[in-house]
Amino acid sequence: MTELRTDRLVLRRWRDSDLAPWAAMNADPEVREHLGDLLTREQSDASVARFRAEFEQRGHGWWAVEVAATGEFIGFAGLDPVDDGLPFDGVEIGWRLARPAWGHGYATEAASAVLAFGFDTLRLPEILAVTTATNFRSQAVMRRIGMTRDPDGDFDDPTAPEGSLRPQVLYRIARGTEG
């Protein structure tokens, strides 16, 4: 199993001890602001079961992220095939952190490690990122890791409810252009 390490973070396989803090994140309206409805504990646990199964199948996916110095679980980061029904194909990078972990550069640090894994280990030709048009924090991380917005790829997510979650923006980065 591939574990990724940075100066401050460990991206690792999910543990049962991650379930409660992950559920708390998924029940936090600010964390879920650009993602949709809050998740119940059962829905949150089911997402981890999917992450674990996908990791077993592919050898990568959504890693749990912890602070190396303390072992504290702070969220997830990883790579996943683009959802069916979107107007493009490829592999998407993503991250989600608990609110106390915001503003410390952890998302950029974790995303940079995931990007390097995608290009250096998986030899992906390109990595995509998608978020709501109003999720400026995630878009800032995308720019910090060298991604460029593709306005021709912006779209309305038909699975999202009407409103601010529907307009989506697409960012891209090609192997060899990361910095």
Rank of each mutant, 00 (worst) to 15 (best):
V10F: 11
F73G: 06
E56F: 00
G78W: 10
G85T: 11
G153A: 01
N135M: 09
I127K: 12
H104T: 05
W63G: 05
R15H: 15
W95I: 00
A110E: 07
P29R: 11
A101S: 12
A27Y: 02
F117N: 08
A20T: 03
W95G: 04
E66K: 09
G75N: 06
L165I: 00
L11C: 02
F119I: 05
W22G: 08
L11R: 09
H34W: 12
P151A: 10
D120G: 05
D156T: 00
E30S: 03
R137L: 00
T134E: 13
T121F: 05
V141F: 11
G75L: 08
N135K: 11
E178W: 02
A101H: 07
E56R: 06
F76D: 02
R13E: 15
G59E: 14
T121S: 09
R123C: 14
R149N: 04
L170P: 00
L35S: 12
A49W: 03
G176W: 07
R175A: 15
L97V: 13
E3G: 10
R96V: 04
W62E: 14
A107M: 07
A174D: 15
G176N: 06
R5K: 15
R12M: 08
W102G: 09
G118E: 07
D152W: 10
N135F: 05
E54K: 08
S138A: 14
P151F: 02
G71W: 07
A23D: 12
D154M: 01
N26G: 09
R58Y: 10
I145E: 03
Q168K: 15
L9G: 03
R12E: 06
F155T: 03
V114C: 02
V67A: 08
D157V: 04
E126A: 04
L124S: 13
R123W: 14
G61Q: 06
D156I: 00
A160D: 02
V67E: 08
L19M: 10
W22M: 12
I127F: 11
I74W: 05
F51V: 11
D84H: 12
A27K: 05
R52Q: 01
E178K: 01
E3R: 12
E42Q: 02
F73E: 14
N26M: 06
M1D: 14
L4I: 14
A129Q: 12
